[in-house]
C-alpha cells in the first residue's frame, strides 16, 4: 500500500511527440535570383512568413559552411526565421544556427502556395516551436481529411523486433503483439490477440486514447506519455482481456467482460 502511495506522489516527467505543418524552402541556384523572386512574392502578401515554421531544404545546393550561414542570415534579414535545415551536414550548423532535421513527408496542402497565397488565417497552431531550442518531432503530418478519421488495420501478428507506428490515429492489430515488439499510435490501440510487447497510445498528446487487448501480458503500456511497466501492473489483470485509459494523471485499467 505504502509503495502505491509513493508512486502516485512522484510527479513524472512527460515528453510528448507532436506533428506540425512546416513550409519547406528549397532554394535554387543562383541564390541571388531566388532571393529576388522570394522578395517579389512576399511583397504581394506581406507578413505571410512571419511566425511560420519554416524548414530550409538545401539538399540540391553545393553550399559550404559559410554560404549556408549567409543564406540563413539573408533569410533572417527578411524576417524569415528558419527552424530547421534539411539536406546538409550537422557539422555545418554551429551554435546559434537551426538544427538539422530529416524524415519529413510531403503534404499536399501547401503545394499550390506560390500561385495562390492562402489567407493568413490558415496559421499553424504552434509557431512557438521556433523559440524552442530543440524542436521535437519534425515530419510534417499528412493533414487528416476531415471527413474520414485516420485509422490503420495491421492484419498479421507483430513479431519480436518489429514496430508498427501510426501517429495519425487509431491502430488495430489482428493478431498478437510479441515480446520485444512495439505498437505506437497517435490515437487508441486495439489488439485482437495477446499483448506481450509494448503498446504506446496517444503518442502525439492525446490523453483520451485507450489501449484494448484480448490478453494482457504487456512489457509496458503508455498513454500520452504516462507509462506503466509490467511490474507496476496489478497482477489481477494478467492474461485477461483488459482496457487501459487515463484518469487524470493516473493510468486506470479494467477487465473487459
Amino acid at each position: 500500500m505504502n509503495a502505491n502511495v509513493a508512486i502516485q506522489q512522484r510527479k513524472s516527467l512527460r515528453f510528448r511527440g507532436r506533428s506540425f505543418m512546416a513550409l519547406v524552402f528549397a532554394p535554387e541556384e543562383p541564390l541571388d535570383e531566388w532571393l529576388a523572386e522570394l522578395d517579389e512574392w512576399s511583397a504581394k502578401s506581406p507578413g505571410y512568413f512571419v511566425g511560420r515554421p519554416i524548414i530550409l531544404d538545401v539538399s540540391g545546393l553545393p553550399l559550404d559552411k559559410e554560404a549556408l550561414a549567409k543564406l540563413i542570415a539573408d533569410l533572417g534579414s527578411r524576417n524569415i526565421r528558419i527552424m530547421g535545415v534539411e539536406g546538409t551536414k550537422a557539422s555545418f550548423l554551429g551554435l546559434g544556427m537551426p538544427p538539422l532535421v530529416g524524415g519529413g513527408s510531403a503534404s499536399a496542402a501547401v503545394n499550390d502556395l506560390p500561385d495562390a497565397p492562402p489567407p493568413p488565417a490558415a496559421k499553424p497552431s504552434a509557431p512557438a516551436a521556433n523559440e524552442n531550442a530543440n524542436p521535437p518531432v519534425m515530419p510534417a503530418a499528412e493533414p487528416a481529411e476531415a471527413s474520414r478519421p485516420a485509422s490503420l488495420v495491421h492484419d498479421s501478428p507483430v513479431r519480436s523486433g518489429q514496430s508498427v507506428i501510426f501517429p495519425q490515429g487509431d491502430l488495430t492489430i489482428l493478431g498478437s503483439v510479441a515480446s520485444g515488439s512495439e505498437v505506437v499510435a497517435g490515437g487508441s490501440i486495439h489488439i485482437y490477440g495477446a499483448l506481450r510487447g509494448r503498446a504506446i497510445a496517444g503518442s502525439t498528446g492525446d490523453a483520451q486514447a485507450r489501449i484494448f487487448c484480448n490478453k494482457l501480458e504487456a512489457e509496458l503500456i503508455a498513454i500520452d506519455g504516462l507509462y506503466r511497466t509490467a511490474d507496476e501492473m496489478d497482477p489481477q489483470f494478467r492474461s485477461r482481456p483488459v482496457q487501459a485509459w487515463l484518469d487524470g494523471e493516473t493510468m486506470a485499467m479494467a477487465t473487459l467482460s
Binding site: S156, R159, S160, G161, A178, S179, G180
Partner: peptide, 16 residues
C-alpha cells in the same frame, strides 16, 4: 524456453 521462443519470433518476422 522463453529466450529461444522470442528469438524464433524475431526470425519469423525476418522470414516474412
Amino acid at each position: 524456453e522463453v529466450s529461444s521462443v522470442r528469438d524464433s519470433d524475431r526470425i519469423i518476422g525476418l522470414l516474412d
